[in-house]
Computed example of a mutant assay.
Amino acid sequence: MSWTDERIELLKNLWDSGQSASQIAKELGEGVTRNAVIGKAHRLGLKSRPSPVKADKPEAPAAPKRVEKKEAKKLVTLLDLTDRMCKWPHGHPGDEDFHFCGKPSEPGMPYCASHCAEAYQAQPPRRDRRQPPRPIL
């Protein structure tokens, strides 16, 4: 495939008419790929266009709901967390009201005292974990 003057002129016209790089590649045919069209347009200095993929962004998720208790507290999101806050997750990450505990964490630990007690449970001594000997029959 070579870029002849006719093909370059066709590329410019199709580009200016707003056709996608894939459509232009099909129109030019003969082994021309979408990436070849984009590269040539860039080298020719043709006006760039917004990406159709980025234009179809979904709406931003709604802010987490506030907890209704005696005093309304703001839910702690990932962006709110600091090194000294409990990182115990509440809910599913895809849910609107997903948040973290946010209470002060224990020194050197990622969780507050109550969540540390839940996450880290002491193992019984090894002798207590042994199976009792089987009786001989």
Rank of each mutant, 00 (worst) to 15 (best):
Trp3His: 12
Thr4Ala: 06
Arg7Met: 08
Ile8Ser: 05
Ile8His: 06
Leu10Cys: 13
Lys12Ile: 15
Trp15Ile: 03
Asp16Thr: 05
Asp16Gln: 10
Ser17Trp: 13
Ser17Phe: 00
Ser17Cys: 09
Gln19Asp: 10
Gln19His: 04
Ser20Gly: 04
Ala21Phe: 05
Ala21Leu: 00
Ala25Val: 02
Lys26Asn: 07
Leu28Gln: 08
Glu30Ala: 04
Val32Phe: 08
Thr33Cys: 01
Arg34Asn: 07
Ala36Thr: 10
Val37Ile: 12
Gly39Ile: 06
Gly39Phe: 10
Lys40Trp: 01
Lys40Arg: 10
His42Lys: 03
His42Phe: 06
Arg43Met: 05
Gly45Leu: 11
Ser48Lys: 01
Pro50Val: 15
Pro52Val: 15
Pro52His: 15
Val53Ile: 14
Val53Pro: 01
Val53His: 01
Val53Trp: 06
Lys54Thr: 14
Lys54Ala: 04
Lys54Val: 13
Ala55Lys: 08
Asp56Asn: 09
Asp56Met: 10
Asp56Leu: 10
Lys57Trp: 04
Pro58Ser: 06
Pro58Arg: 14
Glu59Pro: 13
Ala60Gly: 04
Pro61Cys: 10
Pro61Tyr: 02
Pro61Asn: 00
Ala62Trp: 00
Pro64Arg: 08
Arg66Ser: 04
Val67Asn: 02
Glu68Ser: 07
Glu68Arg: 05
Lys69Glu: 09
Lys69Cys: 04
Glu71Lys: 02
Ala72Cys: 06
Lys73Ala: 13
Lys73Thr: 15
Leu75Glu: 00
Leu75Phe: 04
Thr77His: 02
Leu78His: 05
Leu78Gly: 13
Leu79Asp: 12
Leu79Val: 14
Met85Trp: 10
Trp88Asp: 00
Gly91Thr: 14
Gly94Ser: 10
Glu96Tyr: 03
Asp97Arg: 08
Cys101Val: 15
Gly102Arg: 04
Ser105His: 00
Glu106Arg: 11
Pro107Lys: 11
Gly108Arg: 03
Gly108Gln: 09
Gly108Ile: 12
Cys112Met: 05
Cys112Gln: 07
Cys112Pro: 13
Cys112Trp: 13
Ala113Asn: 09
Ala113Ile: 11
Ala119Ser: 15
Tyr120Ala: 02
Gln121Val: 15
Gln121Pro: 09
Gln121Met: 13
Gln121Ala: 15
Ala122Lys: 05
Gln123Val: 12
Pro124Cys: 00
Arg129Gly: 13
Arg130Pro: 03
Arg130Trp: 12
Gln131Phe: 06
Gln131Val: 07
Pro132Ile: 02
Pro135Gln: 13
Pro135Glu: 08
Leu137Met: 09
Leu137Asn: 00
